[in-house]
Design a protein around this nucleic acid. Structure first.
Length: 471
RNA sequence: GUCCCCAUCGUCUAGCCUGGCCCAGGACACCGGCCUUUCACGCCGGCGACAGGGGUUCAAAUCCCCUUGGGGACGCCA
């Protein structure tokens, strides 16, 4: 069996968005799953709209997502000679011809066709003129006037287009540059691409490309057109739906694994499984389980998946990404050794890394930021003896042992005949400034003995001296 | 307008090819409850869909046709 070769060919006319990322993912998965090859190519033949900053952003996004490629990035602008060579072949074989129609003439033709109730298309008026190449002349592919063009799509089955619907497409512009259709086909042929997984907005382009393959007498690749990703209003996903570009998700605190998991499940399924690691996906991906209908992007589901991936991750693997958000928030950097413990306490309660960074703030800030209401309710004179007692017990406890901390609290509860809650609330406020936090003991351990004692005695101090708490 | 594609809970989907196990299963969201030192996590329960109409068949979410709805494509853009 031949090696599977897939590719992802974005055009650098915008950032990598979710739809593109999913297409890239499917191609990557299929290649990895089959020990195939994944090629990355930039379709930058539109000199007007292509921009270097987009190239950079796409490269960066691919890297962040971890979609490694075996070949590339190739740039179509560096391969013009190849396309011209193929175009020449077509011209010399009489399968393509030059056309000198002006844009105005073309517009008029389309309008006329439309008025007659047909499809707007080129009427082929230069087809038999045998015009020579030259300035102002574009090369068009001569396609059959009658009959049908069909191809088999792995997800949709056989798709057939009447040739009358098609027109003689331009393959070389009058300035000699290749158009999209020629460039993709030539690239895919010369790069050995045999499996094309792409958005289904390309199905109506496919017969044109099939015709180019046929004119070139090359075998067709396997096509798999995946449904589009839609916004909540069921329109093609775009900037107007909020964050559409991949890198924005990193900044919002998403894990690439979570985004990949989410994207994979949008348009693909594997029974009832919802949570997938990268390895799961590679192992279980198959073209057969791709869906046929368009899917709406659901931010809540992404968030849920992200939370699940955060929970499942090792604290160590979360360090770097969390640091990114901590720095962005201008928080003091924690000692590297202290970070995993902090992360561990926050994992079950953070849906994003940005949220985790916010929740980590109390551990890191030199001064506790007190919430006024919490102070009023829990750090009053009533709490004073409690805090004094707990400070005493805790100062003699071994912080490496959660049981010791528990025992310290139990002793104070006993002395005052109080429930855990009555005691925990003031301590929590003293330690964190607020009423919401990770579990008491794991939190104290992550905070460390020194800070824990400091903060309790500081709170005590404030109560005794009547010194105000400031947020 | 013309052509192509699609159609299961609000959303992502399983089931459809190879009809009966489906008065349709899972997940997210939402609503209750449990657990509990707070917030989460977790667990239990609830709400909620085969677009409509015709066929075929003993039997249709599953097969066929029509309607409706949605999407995409019709560039010397990709």
């Amino acid at each position: 069996m031949k090696q599977i070769v897939t590719r992802f060919p974005p055009s650098p006319t915008g950032t990598l968005h979710l739809g593109g990322a999913r297409t890239a993912l499917f191609n990557w998965l299929y290649a990895r799953k089959n020990n195939g090859k994944f090629i990355f190519r930039l379709e930058d033949t539109d000199l007007e709209r292509s921009r270097q900053e987009y190239v950079d952003q796409i490269l960066c996004a691919m890297e962040w997502l971890g979609l490694s490629y075996d070949e590339g990035p190739y740039y179509q602008t560096k391969r013009f000679d190849v396309y011209r060579e193929f175009a020449k072949k077509l011209y010399e074989a009489g399968k393509a011809y030059y056309c000198t129609c002006t844009p105005e003439e073309l517009d008029a033709m389309r309008e006329k066709a439309m008025a007659e109730g047909g499809k707007p298309k080129y009427d082929g008026r230069c087809r038999e003129k045998k015009l020579p190449p030259g300035p102002g002349a574009a090369l068009r592919l001569k396609i059959p006037l009658t009959g049908h063009t069909s191809f088999t799509d792995v997800v949709r089955g056989r798709i057939t287009f009447p040739n009358e619907e098609l027109d003689d497409l331009v393959i070389l512009r009058s300035d000699g540059t290749p158009t999209y259709h020629l460039a993709v086909v030539v690239d895919d042929i010369t790069m050995g691409v045999n499996t094309i997984i792409r958005g289904d907005d390309h199905v109506s382009n496919t017969p044109r490309q099939v015709l180019i393959y046929q004119a070139l007498e090359e075998p067709l690749p396997v096509y798999a057109h995946v449904p589009m990703v839609l916004g909540p209003d069921k329109k093609k996903l775009s900037k107007r739906h909020g964050a559409a570009s991949v890198m924005e998700y990193r900044d919002m605190g998403f894990l690439p694994e979570a985004l990949l998991n989410f994207l994979a499940r949008l348009g693909w399924s594997c029974g009832d499984q919802e949570f997938f690691t990268r390895e799961d996906l590679v192992e279980k991906f198959s073209l057969e389980n791709l869906g046929r209908s368009a899917g709406v992007f659901d931010a809540d589901k992404l968030l849920d998946l992200n939370a699940a991936h955060i929970r499942a991750a090792s604290p160590e693997s979360l360090q770097e990404p969390l640091l990114y958000h901590l720095r962005k928030m201008g928080l003091p950097e924690p000692a590297p050794a202290a970070l995993p413990a902090i992360i561990r306490t926050l994992q079950p309660r953070s849906k994003t890394l940005a949220e985790m960074a916010e929740k980590a703030a109390f551990y890191l800030r030199p001064e506790v930021a007190f919430d006024e209401k919490a102070v009023e309710k829990h750090l009053n004179t009533e709490a004073e003896p409690l805090l004094a007692a707990i400070l005493d017990k805790v100062s003699r406890a071994d912080f490496g042992d959660e049981k010791a901390l528990e025992a310290a609290f139990a002793a104070v509860m006993e002395t005052f005949s109080l429930g855990f809650g009555k005691l925990a609330h003031p301590v929590r406020v003293a330690l964190t400034g607020g009423t919401v936090s990770p579990g008491m003991f794991e939190m104290m351990q992550a905070l460390g003995k020194e800070k824990t004692l400091d903060r309790i005695s500081d709170a005590l101090d404030r109560i005794r001296t009547g010194r105000g708490f400031r947020a």
